[in-house]
Design a protein around this nucleic acid. Sequence first.
DNA 1: AGGCCGATCTTCT
DNA 2: GAAGATCGGCCTC
Length: 199
Amino acid sequence: MGAHLPRAFFARDVLEVAPDCIGKVLVAQSSEGIVAARIVESEAYRGPEDQAAHSRNGLRTARTEVMFGEPGHVYMFRLYGSSWAFNIVTGNVGEPQVVLLRGVEPIEGVHIMAARRRIDPHRREISNGPGKLCQAMGFNGEHYGCDLVESGTIYLTDGGAEQIGTSRRINIDYAGIWAERPWRFFERGNRYVSVPPRI
DNA sequence: AGGCCGATCTTCT
DNA sequence: GAAGATCGGCCTC
């Protein structure tokens, strides 16, 4: 596996980091073994101005605290009770921005991912959504605040992508004009993209 | 393949 | 007390 992506990769505006994450490899080690997957879909959440972000208007609470700190750390939050979402802090300290990962393509440890998901390893539903990829990668609340640059257990390594597409972000229609911004990024034609665009 | 709907729980009002 | 950065089962086509 290649070297960890450095702090400098994450210490840029989220609108640069989010598309650059497409094709990068996410690695997670646990007692069950190593799991690695290519990132094929991401979304940028750019507080404090972005009204779809949890950090909108600079809202700073125990939940959002990590977003105001050093880039390269992990922001975990729960979605609708049953699943988790995995995000990476970007930008300068004090700028509450994150990249949400919405889809990954299994590369290594597919059998581990399939067992966690209780699903056949060849099905795209193994990791084609923010909650599904967290279950497959073994991510939960314990990973809140984890540093992807210094940690030996969760990190990103280099990798390339084919053609990258953009679209509005998924399921944030309540956010008015902010819902229309093309801040979702994905690899065109990849079957692990959660909501495939219309040709 | 796609639409509807209930489950589930943390956070904020 | 309500609203989500969702998922999976069940239904119809």
